[in-house]
């Protein structure tokens, strides 16, 4: 962060920073501090008075079975999305890396789901799985498996996982392909000369060299599953049936915006903030490490 040559007008520097800082303070830092503060307040049932209750909102939150259930659903959901998204993307990237000349062609055909909004991705898969019009639901019915995600919580969760994974594969694919193409061919050749077949070479040479990319994608995918999938859940299942697809972000929205539970929603916001901050720090620590030793 050093330039030998700098300009001297200080006032100009402040002026240049002003728009970004104003927006950051008004719409980011101030609301976040409000959330922190409100998370320690409680409103009486008529909304007439507010009192300071310290950490009581958090105690209530973690004693609330609905919230614990939502934590569990979120953990399952993000683990499934991250794992399947990474596994499928890695498979496709390894295959694309094999067919060098056609790789660009396949790349074009695989990357566009990135541009589809989560809510729209949800709708696309709703068309596939809808109990009355969905092709997949219909085919499943033919082989004797009744699909109705309006009634079956497990099926609803599968539906949102499929939609969320579908959208994320393109992103993972691009990073894996870039990672694969950066591996020196000499390493692979050396492996081949030593008599290692393609499978063995993958697990002993390629996969370990990809592990930084994999780790990075793991964090990014978990963040994605936690925060960017709100649209899928809201548009397709509305957290239901029951609470079966109520991920944390959806719950904050529902309790705060529809249920108008000020303190409880603020406490949930604070928990989510803690999660994002942890994940961001992990991600940046990793990026720094890679820059230093890579």
């Amino acid at each position: 962060m050093h330039k030998r040559v700098v300009f001297r007008e200080r006032w100009l520097a402040y002026l240049l920073l002003a728009p970004q800082l104003a927006i950051t303070l008004i719409f980011f830092i101030w609301p976040a501090s409000q959330a922190l503060w409100q998370s320690m307040l409680q409103q009486d049932p008529f909304g007439l008075s507010v009192q300071f209750v310290g950490l009581e909102n958090f105690e209530r939150l973690f004693a609330n079975p609905d919230y614990l259930n939502s934590l569990e659903v979120t953990a399952l959901f993000s683990a499934a999305v991250a794992f399947s998204g990474i596994a499928i993307a890695l498979l496709l990237a390894v295959m694309a890396d094999r067919v060098l000349r056609a790789a660009t062609f396949y790349k074009t055909l695989l990357i566009w789901p990135y541009a589809v909004a989560p809510a729209i991705a949800g709708v696309l898969w709703l068309f596939m799985f809808h109990p009355t019009i969905g092709v997949v639901a219909w085919l499943l019915g033919k082989i004797g498996y009744a699909w109705n995600h309006h009634l079956n919580g497990g099926q609803a969760l599968v539906l949102v996982i499929v939609a969320a994974t579908w959208k994320q594969i393109s992103y993972n694919f691009l990073f894996f392909l870039a990672g694969l193409q950066a591996i020196p061919k000499s390493l692979i050749e050396a492996g081949a000369i030593d008599g290692a077949g393609p499978g063995k070479r993958f697990w002993t040479i390629v996969f370990p060299l990809l592990s930084p990319t994999t780790f990075f994608l793991l964090v990014v995918n978990v963040v994605y599953a936690f925060f960017d999938t709100f649209g899928i859940v809201h548009a397709v299942t509305e957290g239901g049936p029951g609470q079966d697809t109520t991920i944390l972000v959806y719950k904050v929205f529902k309790d705060g915006f529809i249920g108008l539970d000020l303190g409880g929603s603020a406490a949930q916001s604070v928990v989510l903030m803690a999660i994002v901050i942890t994940l961001t720090v992990i991600q940046f620590r990793w990026v720094e490490r890679r820059v230093q030793y890579g």
Partner: peptide, 30 residues
């Protein structure tokens, strides 16, 4: 940030950095 030296430069940098950690989803109501 890059071409000027002024008091509060690092503070400004970190203030902007913090926005990364505060997506809309975590501060909906406020």
């Amino acid at each position: 940030i890059v071409y000027f030296r002024f008091p509060g430069r690092m503070l400004a940098f970190w203030t902007i950095f913090v926005t990364l950690m505060l997506p809309v989803e975590v501060r909906i109501l406020p």
